[in-house]
Simulated scan of single mutants.
Amino acid sequence: MKHFVLICALVAGPALAETCPDAPDHDAALQALIGAARMAPDQGAAQALSQKMWAIWTDAPDEQAQAMLDRGMSKRSSYDFLGAIQDFDRLVAYCPNYAEGYNQRAFVNYLRHDFAGALEDLDRAIALSPNHVAALSGRALTLLGLDRLEEARAALTYALTLNPWLSERSLIAEGGPLAPVGEDI
């Protein structure tokens, strides 16, 4: 019987190594940063808080997932969009419950003007992380790209309730493409 258990453990070991652990629970820290962003006195203070949010979102569940995320982001930065998509595809296959894999793949699809693909990934990222401010603002930009202005305005308005300092706020200001529609006289 001992040999059977040992054989089962040896066989199962590699399969278990291919399972992504749960993403770290940073919800309390993220909520604190969102609260601080709402109260930030200026753009500079808000930018520092945004960088801390990014550190949370890009904290992958394990080293393997972190390597895939970092590699994909590096490829995206060097405009290797197909290589980045491949890395993010691997990441979401390995860690289907890690929101940032979907958010990063959405960003690459957005840059490629595949707005439908981006929107699908953004919706998944937001389902996994409802207060992912970057995914929410990315969703607004993607909806704008799809010319779905009312939905884009609503998405951006919600993102701005979480962080009123987002650079995308100019889109909803007077004269911007998502400015509230006024009444004609």
Rank of each mutant, 00 (worst) to 15 (best):
A60F: 04
A48M: 05
I126R: 11
W165P: 09
A32M: 05
T157Q: 11
Y110E: 10
L178I: 11
K2T: 08
R76K: 13
M68C: 01
Y102K: 13
A29N: 05
L149Y: 09
E63R: 11
G176I: 07
L82P: 01
E168N: 12
C20I: 04
I56P: 00
C95E: 12
T157H: 08
L6D: 05
E18Q: 13
A93M: 09
L128T: 09
W54E: 06
I185V: 01
A135P: 01
E100N: 10
H113P: 00
R153A: 09
I56W: 00
P96K: 08
A23V: 06
A9E: 06
L33F: 02
D87L: 05
D114I: 02
A40R: 13
N103D: 07
Q47I: 03
R112T: 08
G13Y: 14
P21L: 03
Y158W: 04
P164I: 14
L91I: 10
R153K: 03
Y102F: 15
A152T: 02
R38F: 05
L119I: 10
P41V: 08
G175I: 08
L143W: 00
G182T: 15
A15D: 01
N131R: 15
L10V: 08
S170H: 12
F107L: 15
S78K: 15
S167Y: 04
A23L: 03
D87G: 04
L143Y: 00
H132K: 12
D121V: 13
L160A: 14
W54A: 04
Q104L: 10
Q47C: 00
A45M: 15
R76T: 06
Q47F: 01
L178Q: 02
A116I: 12
A93D: 15
A125E: 07
G176W: 03
A173W: 05
F107W: 15
F107K: 09
M39F: 05
A173R: 06
A60V: 09
L49Y: 01
A9V: 04
V11T: 10
H26M: 03
L146P: 07
D80G: 02
H3W: 14
H26D: 09
L82C: 05
R153P: 10
A45L: 12
A118S: 13
A29K: 12
M39E: 14
E151H: 01
L16G: 01
D123Y: 11
Q64N: 07
I126T: 14
A45K: 15
D70E: 11
Y98N: 02
A118Q: 06
L136I: 07
T19P: 00
E100S: 05
H26G: 10
Y102E: 06
R148M: 13
M39P: 00
A12Q: 14
A134K: 03
L16C: 02
I126N: 12
G117E: 06
H26T: 12
G182K: 12
L162Y: 11
T157M: 05
A45W: 13
